[in-house]
């Protein structure tokens, strides 16, 4: 996980030719931990802080009216204007693409970014929307019914990615 994040940090810097005008936005909850780690690595490399935001996509979900259990709304904290910035959206697992669709809508409501890029720790396939990540930690082929879980030190666990077969 650590090596993947270090590589993604370098790729973000390479693609954007440095850190000027770049901001990281993590999708709650896993994406926020990853965005913070990426920001720390970028700070080490560039000696500059990169703006960091946290996005909750609950209000933008496409299944709000059909789910049986209602998801909890958490805070969106983006302490900067996103207009004209290059936003790197960060999430842990890229699966159907629906979360990213919600996040894109959520971001667009907050302003008009110059560009939105996507960084994910794991791409497990099975997209249901035409969405693709710019930075991928690892592509893991999975079966549709399997479950990919990411564990974080921040939650008192060992960093690891598990594929759970039902």
């Amino acid at each position: 996980m650590a090596r993947a994040l270090t590589r993604i940090s370098h790729e973000i810097l390479e693609r954007n030719k440095g850190i000027e005008g770049v901001a990281l936005v993590g999708i709650r909850t896993g994406g926020v931990f990853l965005a913070k780690r990426l920001a720390a690595r970028i700070q080490q490399i560039e000696k500059r802080d990169v703006p960091l935001g946290e996005l909750d996509i609950t209000l933008y979900r496409d299944d709000l009216s059909i789910r049986k259990d209602q998801p909890e709304i958490r805070k969106t904290t983006i302490p900067f204007h996103i207009s004209d910035l290059k936003i790197v959206l960060v999430d842990d697992v890229l699966f159907t693409g629906r979360t990213i669709r919600a996040a894109l809508d959520g971001l667009m409501d907050l302003g008009r970014p110059a560009e939105i890029q996507l960084a994910v720790l794991v791409d497990r396939g099975h997209r249901q929307l035409p969405i693709r990540a710019n930075y991928v930690g690892k592509s893991i082929p999975t079966a549709r019914e399997e479950n990919v879980q990411v564990f974080f030190e921040e939650l008192g666990q060992d960093d690891r990615v598990c594929i759970v077969t039902p």
Partner: peptide, 17 residues
């Protein structure tokens, strides 16, 4: 309510929930 308060501070004060 605490989480939703942020919406009122946006330029576009609307979410599709």
């Amino acid at each position: 309510a605490e989480s939703l308060k942020e919406v009122g501070g946006r330029d576009i004060k609307k979410v599709p929930a």
